Structures are given as structure tokens and as C-alpha cells.
Simulated scan of single mutants.
Amino acid sequence: MVQSHFRVVYDGPAVADGEMDVAQLASSLLALGKLIENVDAIATGEPGRVRVKVQSDLTRGSFDVGLAISFADHAWQAVTAWAMTPSGAGTISLLGLLGFNVKDGAKGVIQAVRWLNGRRVAQRTQLRDGNTTLIADDGEALTVPDQVARLIDDPTVRQPLERFTEPLREDGVEEIRFEAERGKAAERITQSEAPAFTAAAGAAPTSTSRFPATYQIKRLYFERGKKWRLSNGSQTIMAAIEDEAFWRAVEVSEVSFSSSDYLVCMVRMDQWLTPAGLKTEFTIEHVDKHIPAPRQTGFDV
């Protein structure tokens, strides 16, 4: 077997002590393994050639996971040959095709999906040099290898990519880095970029509903775009707040919040029916009332 190694680093407040939710990490790593295997199978037409193994390597202040991609010796020769053919021009390795270790402005799956950021590809122009120019629905263009242009539309690529980046849509993980050498990031995906990597990004919801509700604040962020963790007592959701009046009041310190306070608000629930199943997102459209959490008081005995 021939192996190629790289590191995945999950970083942020939730992992400052080298700790991370086991279920969250396991789901993300399983999805990364499936992503790598699927991309290789699509690119080469030979499923089952690649296996991804985890090598435990923890560093205080972040959660580092070493990964080894293993190829059978004859398969490695096939990868090299594929990379040298016109259809593989612009990629010298599987990691480059994924976008984990691109150099000199090259574009892999990660860079193309980030660039799209939920936009629809309105037009494709295949070039003679093995590349394809993608034109988004707003007219912006990006040129990528032909393989990348096909991969970003494939559900077996986009679905595991979404699951792999799921920790960025939860509390406490602010970025995921890819390192060929410890401490030298070849690429990174940040929390603010996470929405671009959802499989349904850019697609219109299959259904939308609005309803009034009261939620208790479980975790809050005073940065626009970040999702608050809210609970109605039976369900916990992650929701961004779109209310401009609310944010203006926060920015001039007219109101102050703390965990366990309550918000009476209008909630929008968007749902998408994707190849991976039903996807649901919540948004607070308007905050009608802020109720401070009841404070315990002492009693004279």
C-alpha cells in the first residue's frame, strides 16, 4: 500500500482544551472519508481504490486529526497516469482535486463551492486546455479543471461535504484547516463560509412557514450572521436573527442579553427536499419582546 498523509484541524472555543463532542467529530470524519472515496471513484471510474484511516494526534488548543489515504500499489500508478492525462490536467493528486492542498491559484472542489456561495451556475464553457469556465447567475466567472466542474454538481460529493463541515454550523468550532505539515495551513474553511457548503445552497426552499414562538437563549453571539442556540423547552434550534431594529438596539447598547433570557419572536422555517433527505433551517425574522430570565432572590429566615 502507498500512503499520503495530511492533517485536519478543528479549531475554536469549543476545542480550546483539546475537547470536542465525540458524535460531532465522528460524523464529520466519516463524511470526510466518504467525500474522499467518492471523489476518487468519480474521477477515475474505479470505486473502492481508496481507504481513509484516522491517526489520533491531539494538540492542546485545537483538535487535530491525522488522516492517511491508502492506495494499492497498482492503483497508485493509475492515479499518476490519470493525473498526467488531458482529462486530469490541473490536478496532480486527489487532495488537489478536492482543494485541500492547491497552489498557485489552482481551484479544487472546496474553492469552487466557496466561490459559488449558494449561487446557481448559469452557463458552462468547456475550454481546450482541460478546464471549464463557470458563469454564475450574477455574471461572475471562475475557471476550474473539468473534473472539478463535474464534481461540484454531484450529490455524492456535495452531501458528504456538507456533513463534513457541519461542526462549523454548531457552537464553538470556528474553522477547519487542512495541513500537509503541522502548523502550516494549506487551506481552511471558516465558520462564516459554512453556509456555502450546504448541499441545498442556492436552491429555493420546497416549503416555508412562519409562526410566533418563545425561545430561551442557550448561546448567543453579538455578531450578525452567527446562529444563536435557542430552546422552546422541547426542541433546540440554531437560528440567525435578521431583525434590523434588534441589531441596531444591540449595537447602541439599548438592550443587553444573557443566556437563559427569553425571546418572543416571529420564526421562519425553510425546508429543502434534497437527495440526502429533508433539510430544515430556522431564521428569527422579528424579535417582538425580550424577557430577562427570572432572578433568584433571597428570603429572610
Score class of each variant (00 low, 15 high):
200 A>S: 11
10 Y>L: 11
109 V>A: 02
167 P>N: 09
225 G>Q: 09
177 R>H: 11
178 F>L: 04
54 V>K: 04
294 P>Q: 10
153 D>H: 10
254 E>D: 12
111 Q>D: 11
292 P>C: 06
95 L>M: 05
55 Q>C: 04
184 K>T: 03
208 T>Q: 07
69 I>K: 05
26 A>D: 06
44 T>I: 08
188 R>Q: 02
202 G>S: 09
110 I>F: 06
9 V>G: 05
190 T>R: 03
226 K>R: 14
111 Q>P: 02
222 F>R: 12
102 V>L: 08
207 S>A: 07
105 G>M: 09
177 R>T: 07
224 R>G: 06
252 V>D: 10
85 T>Q: 11
147 Q>E: 12
230 L>P: 06
190 T>C: 04
56 S>G: 01
263 L>N: 01
299 F>W: 15
7 R>A: 09
260 S>P: 00
160 P>F: 00
25 L>T: 00
193 E>V: 04
161 L>T: 01
208 T>L: 08
277 G>T: 00
224 R>K: 14
42 I>D: 01
212 P>I: 12
9 V>Q: 00
282 F>Q: 01
50 V>L: 07
166 E>V: 15
128 R>S: 15
82 W>G: 00
247 W>S: 00
299 F>T: 12
64 D>V: 09
159 Q>W: 04
89 A>L: 08
74 H>S: 10
152 I>Q: 02
29 L>R: 09
120 R>P: 05
205 P>V: 02
246 F>Q: 07
256 S>I: 05
230 L>R: 01
111 Q>G: 08
204 A>M: 12
182 R>Q: 14
245 A>K: 07
53 K>I: 08
272 W>I: 12
168 L>V: 02
129 D>N: 15
102 V>H: 04
265 C>I: 11
234 S>V: 14
266 M>R: 13
274 T>K: 07
152 I>D: 08
292 P>H: 06
97 L>I: 15
155 P>H: 05
244 E>M: 04
262 Y>I: 00
186 A>H: 07
69 I>T: 08
263 L>M: 08
162 E>P: 03
256 S>D: 13
166 E>N: 10
134 L>G: 04
143 T>Q: 15
238 M>Q: 02
181 E>Y: 13
48 G>Q: 07
225 G>M: 07
173 V>Y: 05
245 A>I: 13
271 Q>L: 03
283 T>Y: 01
245 A>L: 05
86 P>K: 10
262 Y>C: 02
174 E>F: 03
70 S>F: 06
92 I>L: 04
237 I>H: 07
98 L>P: 01
169 R>Y: 03
284 I>R: 01
241 I>K: 02
249 A>M: 08
213 A>T: 15
102 V>D: 00
247 W>T: 03
179 E>Q: 07
77 Q>E: 10
280 T>F: 07
166 E>C: 09
205 P>K: 04
127 L>G: 06
199 A>G: 05
52 V>R: 01
177 R>L: 13
76 W>Q: 06
166 E>T: 15
124 R>A: 05
107 K>Q: 10
270 D>S: 13
53 K>C: 06
43 A>N: 00
